[in-house]
Amino acid sequence: MATAPSAATPATTSPRTRVSPLAIFLTFLLVGATSFGGGVIAYLRDALVRNKQWFDDVEFLEMTSISNTLPGLNATNMAILAGDRLAGWLGAAAALIGMCLPAFLFMVGAGIVYAEHHARPLAAAALRGVAAAATGLIAATWYKIGKKSLRGFYDAFFVMAAILGINYFKWGVPITLLAVGAVAIFTYRPHTEPEKPAQEQEEWIRSLH
């Protein structure tokens, strides 16, 4: 999809020119309507960094790292963070609505079709195929993320603990998240953890392309 990223755009501290909420809405609408196959972050980087140049790579990376830490999807969290930085809360709302509108219409349409036809064997057969491929796709997405971001024994331990909590001990998602999350955060409490170089994270984001 992309060629080599342009190296080191300097991190600007100069005040950003405000972008109109309409321009923000249209940009995110386009991403929201064309980002098929998951990996919205890569589409967003193309649109916001390369194409519109509203952000440099450093700031984009910072926003992805906030997105990853918070609940909510990457696509919508990124829309809110970027929209806010470009035009305040109105920009955040414009970006969120633009990002979500195409998918919303798609899924409402899918619901109407499914309600009508789900009893048909052909519809179920096609969806069985889709479910199988979706399993492979989601597994690949997380395999790539895991390969890039997991380091060392503790990371592997917490991944396993969460998997076992969900699928073996049947703790349920909330308990697993709170229990394993608390132990993990405590394990990486201030001044005990090995530093992860920032460059590694930048490579991660480039590797999305």
Binding site: W142, I145, G146, F157, I166, I185
Partner: peptide, 27 residues
Amino acid sequence: DSIQKGLGPVAIGLAVGGLITFGKGAI
């Protein structure tokens, strides 16, 4: 930083756990 480093692997584990649940219905 601690929250970011701690939640990273937990998020991956939860996603894989979810995928296993999903895969049981799909595969």
